[in-house]
């Protein structure tokens, strides 16, 4: 018990020192708050206009599709049924089509005027029997969709660089060697770094989330508590990934390269800026091995579709896995 208390005391001291260092570095602190806000506003302005295609159709399968999908002004992409209906309820697509045996099943969103027009066109142009399905749900603006992406991206940079780069800087400057000459253990040092950066990441994300919502009033229909849980697990997963990268790296330049190698695929493939629904299957599979993908899919499910705990449990489990592996590797391989 006494030993645990001593350990907590040392962790708290390192935690406080790291927080002080971050808070007094006003340039970094300010940038962590200002940068995501600027991006959200820029995207809200740039993508506020209508999309280029007149109509979008999502197809389940590619076989014997109705002529409608080839009409000028109609853009089509393929998805599985769950994804397709999810897109329809968010009005990211106007019509969902599935050819089964000799009939054509279709779904429209009852709140969508574009969907109603496409339905009429389909009825006039298709000879096979039609079966109708309907969903509802309000359209989401691009800003509604991209806000979780930007918050997630900010979290990713803050977590990976704020821990990975800083630990390598400490090592290169000899500070870790100085700490090694004290009773501070690897676990205490690493835990303090994780907790400090988690506090910073969650605080910055909350400020940006509340601040941008006050002005842009983006869609948030789900549970705030679940969103906090996702941010907590996502933050931890990426912080421990940063630690694992930094656990033995001695050069800041090499750390920079490694961190870029990890963040760049997430930036492209995790759905920060655009949906991967229309991309090849192998790309979508690859995206599933990236922690940011699970953070964003879970966050969008909660914010846009009012998903519950059970709906996002798989994403949370994957993030827990990342945390366990990241922390395990860091403690095992860490070099002062």
């Amino acid at each position: 018990m006494k030993s645990a208390m001593r350990s907590l005391k040392r962790m708290k001291a390192v935690f406080v020192a790291r927080n002080l260092e971050y808070l007094r570095d006003r340039a970094s602190f300010g940038w962590n708050l200002v940068f995501p806000v600027l991006i959200v506003f820029a995207l809200a302005v740039v993508f506020s206009g209508p999309t280029k295609a007149l109509f979008t159709v999502t197809t389940i399968g590619q076989e014997a599709l109705p002529e409608l999908v080839k009409f000028p002004g109609v853009e089509s992409l393929e998805a599985d049924r769950t994804k397709a209906l999810e897109r329809l309820s968010r009005q990211q697509t106007d019509l969902v089509l599935e050819v089964r045996d000799q009939s054509v099943n279709y779904w429209v969103n009852g709140n969508s005027a574009a969907g109603a027009i496409l339905e009429i066109l389909l009825q006039y142009t298709e000879d096979r029997p039609l079966e109708r399905g309907e969903t509802d749900g309000q359209a989401i603006r691009y800003v509604d969709w991209v806000v979780p992406g930007i918050l997630g991206m900010n979290m990713m940079y803050s977590a990976l660089w704020g821990v990975g780069y800083v630990v390598v800087r400490y090592r290169q400057s000899g500070y870790l060697r100085r700490l090694k000459a004290t009773p501070l253990t690897k676990f205490e040092f690493l835990s303090a770094q994780v907790l400090s950066r988690l506090l910073v990441t969650l605080t910055a994300s909350s400020i940006v989330f509340i601040g941008t919502n006050l002005i842009l009033d983006y869609k948030m229909v789900g549970s705030i508590a679940l969103l906090v849980l996702i941010a907590l697990m996502g933050g931890l997963a990426m912080i421990t990934l940063g630690l694992a990268i930094a656990c033995r790296t001695e050069s800041k330049e090499f750390a920079d390269g490694l961190l870029n190698a990890v963040t760049f695929p997430m930036l492209l493939l995790s759905g920060v800026w655009f949906s991967l629904d229309g991309s090849p299957q192998w790309v979508q599979t690859m995206a599933q091995v990236l922690p940011l993908t699970h953070v964003l899919e879970a966050a969008r499910a909660v914010m846009l579709d009012n998903a519950g705990f059970a709906d996002i449990a798989l994403h949370l489990s994957v993030l827990v896995g990342f945390c366990v592996v990241g922390m395990g590797v860091s403690i095992k391989l860490f070099k002062w």
Binding site: A17, R18, L20, E21, R177
Partner: peptide
């Protein structure tokens, strides 16, 4: 140590407090 860095932005007071807290 011959060449050692301390955490950026910390004062001698902060450093003394930090290192003191490592010991009983």
């Amino acid at each position: 140590f011959q060449a050692t860095a301390l955490q950026d932005y910390l004062t001698p007071f902060d450093n003394l407090k930090l290192f003191s807290s490592f010991y009983d």
